[in-house]
């Protein structure tokens, strides 16, 4: 009988489970950084004398082999489809395909791990899932635009919505709100930056990704910078130059309309 702590900070009974039942393969092994390394075995808790016992109802491996915990292992099927998600707060509308990516059904278990026999996943439902506030019934109007004024995509205009608008180059499995398809100097792997619209303060914020150095009006941009009308964004070593043209601001926003004049 020994309680064991795995490197990810989970406790388990190593006589019941050969490996931590809470660590799936998708979980990264996290380096404790030396200072907070957990010692092997249980017992550091001070003067607590009681015997630690294996909890009842714990998943027991059949035949002694290490069993993957209930469906924690590699069940990452069926996530394709809705690339355009990104909405939270504000007036954002979920994409039309919202919720349909849960149709993987039993196929998405990949034949390796199974859910508990007494439970069947509900298909095609977000019922009870943790979700942020989203407003479905409103249109999703533009709150501003990015205009490409230099580089291979020169002349294109990209709408900004009331959410985090990601900037990147679309690749397999990745889709960005603002996709600079022709600029080969931009990584396909991750968004280079994002422009967020803050509906509460009716302002824009420019957030750098981790893949490239970005310039705002010729200066290296900080991780978060407020955006002013006609700010110029340049991306790393690429030729692309983007001009920020807001619609919402001190004169207009979609909630209060035009300042100093009624909108019909």
């Amino acid at each position: 009988m020994a309680m064991k702590q795995c490197p990810n900070g989970h406790f388990y009974d190593d006589e019941v489970n050969a490996a931590c039942p809470y660590c799936g393969k998708e979980q990264s092994i996290i380096n404790f950084g030396g200072a907070t390394q957990a010692p092997p075995g249980w017992g550091g808790g001070g003067g607590y004398g009681s015997q630690t016992q294996a909890p009842r109802g714990w998943p027991r491996p059949d035949g002694g082999a290490t069993q993957a915990p209930n469906g924690q292992d590699g069940t990452r099927g069926g996530t394709g489809g809705t690339g355009g998600m990104g909405g939270y707060g504000g007036k954002t509308q979920p994409p039309s395909g919202w919720g349909t990516n849960q149709t993987g059904g039993t196929g998405s278990y990949g034949g390796r791990t199974q859910p508990p026999s007494d439970w069947k996943p509900e298909k095609n439902t977000d019922e009870g899932k943790t979700m942020p506030i989203m407003h479905k019934d409103v249109q999703d109007p533009d709150v501003g635009w990015l205009v490409c004024i230099g580089g291979p995509d020169k002349g294109r205009t990209y709408p900004l919505k009331a959410k985090g608008n990601t900037i990147g180059r679309a690749g397999s499995g990745h889709k960005f709100d603002i996709s600079l398809d022709k600029d080969m100097n931009i990584s396909r792997d991750a968004a280079v930056a994002s422009i967020g619209y803050d509906a509460k303060r009716n302002s824009f914020v420019f957030i750098c990704g981790e893949s490239s150095i970005l310039y705002l009006n010729g200066e290296v941009a900080g991780s978060r910078s407020p955006l002013a009308p006609f700010d110029v964004i340049e991306i790393g070593n690429s030729e692309t130059v983007l001009l920020f043209v807001p619609l919402c601001g001190s004169r207009f926003d979609w909630i209060n309309g035009l300042k100093g004049g009624a909108v019909r």
């Binding site: 702590q5 900070g9 989970h10 809470y22 979980q27 907070t36 249980w42 550091g44 808790g45």
Partner: peptide, 10 residues
């Protein structure tokens, strides 16, 4: 996800 840090080290 969950974790404890330092739970066993007095």
């Amino acid at each position: 996800s969950f974790c404890f840090i330092n739970a066993t080290d007095v």
